[in-house]
Write a protein that binds this DNA or RNA. Structure first.
Lengths: 234, 234
DNA sequence: TGCGATATTATGTGCATACATAATCATGAA
DNA sequence: TTCATGATTATGTATGCACATAATATCGCA
């Protein structure tokens, strides 16, 4: 019933142990054999078993404690690696031609909730950008973005016709960390007009705030046209 | 500017190198020093550097190729680890009391789209369950679930008053893999009544299909009450 | 010059060993 | 009995070494 009888590679052993766990050899929360025991079973060194078990712990399959041993994780909480898609790639990989139109671009005071999410004072001016993303000429998503010109001084003169603001920022300020929320909103009049849908339509929405070393970079609110799904595997 | 000057532990070195990458010491796509070079710089063994760089590669910060060396990843695509919350924990961690009411429970043929998502023929009977999840007595989310009684024969007689179907299934069929989609839907009449909102309201919705070793376990469509946000960090 | 064989090189991996660290268990004194 | 102390034990981690593997560079020959 083993998935495959591999050589004594660390991920061969990882898969072997995973199969035994999934196969129900041990109950949830139960202690599984120690590294030395596995090493003997698979005739490999303890280091190799260690790497295998560490990988399983990293995945959340098992929990390990010094001296406490390794046990099957009691409640297997589903988790997934979610890739935030780049809109252009998303559209193109669906076989459609991508384009975008900048509807608005100006320097202004942000609304209170935006300033709050970016951890900025109310009187801090930001660059406000509205972009309509199109797939095959049809509205795909509408984006409202605020950028902090203090953190990204070059943004104000950036040429955003060839490359979208999102990709421009990723290129200029990589390795920024951030927070994101997913939610559903009803289309207001402006959104309805932009996306060519009826007011009140349910729109899948993603908000993102990103920082680079404690300095706010950008906040975006992205509304997808109806029918959009964000898929991932768990 | 170093995060911290640790000893020569593999994750000390990992963070040191990460800081140098983030600090812009090398351009995007540029080759960074080899393992031997880093080992010399930090006076540790090549194995230790190897682990550190492998971790960074796993994170997507760098790309490694045998003989090709290690280079900073050209386009840093944002990705996140999304934890699918368990509703009870979600409600309780917000300080509210959780409860649920089973509104419906019967064996029936599923709608075509459900059968399709579970990779089942149209004439395969499933257990259909409708549950209202409440936070502090108020509707929090409404769930329609289909369970395959062939894969999970015990489910039909499961006592779902103390424990929710979701947690029951996680306990009985752990380690199942699956797919999920996030989307926005407008409340139909039934949803509006269940969640006590106006028809047409935008509802954040999660669909999940899970399998255990090629056998379908369950498909759920979960509609959250308005105002819900799924938060995560990137 | 063109091309295939060979050498070189950077990462990938396994192993034996040594020591570190944290939690538990056993011991013994108050 | 209770509590402090030290022994025990399982995992965590670093190291030197050997060899595997893949991609590139180089060389030699036609």
């Amino acid at each position: 019933m083993n998935i495959a009888a591999q050589a004594t590679t660390h991920h061969g052993i990882r898969e072997a142990i995973r199969a035994r766990i999934v196969g129900g050899e041990w109950d949830l929360g139960e202690l599984i054999p120690g590294e030395a025991e596995f090493a003997a079973q698979y005739s490999c060194s303890r280091s190799t078993v260690n790497r295998a078990l560490q990988a399983l712990a990293h995945e959340g399959i098992v929990e390990r404690k010094r001296k406490g041993g390794t046990r099957v994780r009691p409640l297997q909480l589903p988790q997934a690696r979610l890739r935030i898609p780049i809109i252009r790639e998303e559209v193109q990989s669906a076989g459609q031609t991508y384009s975008h139109r900048i509807m608005r671009r100006e320097r202004q005071l942000p609304p209170g909730d935006v300033a709050q999410r970016m951890h900025l004072p109310d009187d801090h001016e930001l660059i406000h950008l509205q972009t309509l993303h199109l797939a095959g000429g049809e509205p795909f998503a509408f984006e409202r973005r605020w950028v902090d010109p203090v953190t990204v001084p070059d943004f104000e003169e950036a040429d955003l016709t060839a490359i979208s603001a999102n990709e421009w920022l990723i290129r200029m300020v990589p390795f920024s960390r951030g927070e994101a929320s997913l939610l559903a909103v009803s289309a207001d009049a402006e959104l309805a007009q932009m996306l060519k849908v009826a007011p009140g339509e349910a729109l899948f929405t993603m908000e993102r705030t990103t920082w680079f070393e404690e300095r706010s970079v950008t906040f975006t609110r992205l509304h997808y046209a109806p029918g959009y799904r964000l898929n991932f595997s768990l």
